[in-house]
């Protein structure tokens, strides 16, 4: 699935400029070390972490986007950094599990 399709389908809010890309898998974790060591490049990463360092991780392994769940506020510093490094950040009011099962139902893998 394409990122822009996903945004429309799941009513995600784009917090940064969006560069459309293909989503190749989903990774859920709130531990940055975990994402750095295990997530596949191109994955969609769902987390409740909003620290600037999520941009470092997403950029390092070239994730397709970060979705911040639980509708958490993302600090301006994180957004600015993400725009500079072309990292897509989206937001959903749903908790991680609720959003994850919607993705499963829609066949996002």
């Amino acid at each position: 699935m394409k990122l822009k399709e996903l945004i429309d389908k799941f009513e995600l809010k784009a917090l940064t400029n969006i560069e459309d890309t293909h989503i190749k898998g989903v990774y859920l974790s709130d531990m940055l070390s975990d994402v750095m060591s295990r997530a596949e490049s191109g994955s969609l990463w769902m987390t409740i972490q909003t620290h600037k360092n999520i941009v470092s991780v997403a950029n390092l392994i070239d994730l397709s986007a970060i979705i911040i769940t639980n509708g958490k506020n993302v600090p301006d510093g994180t957004i600015e950094l993400a725009n500079r490094f072309y990292v897509n950040i989206l937001s959903s009011p749903l908790p991680t599990y609720e959003l994850a099962i919607k993705l499963v139902e829609a066949g996002v893998k």
Binding site: V26, L28, S29, T96, A100, I101, V104
Partner: peptide, 12 residues
């Protein structure tokens, strides 16, 4: 399983 895999399996 990792977190997404576990969510997928539970959802199913």
């Amino acid at each position: 399983a990792d977190m997404y895999e576990a969510c997928v399996k539970i959802a199913n």
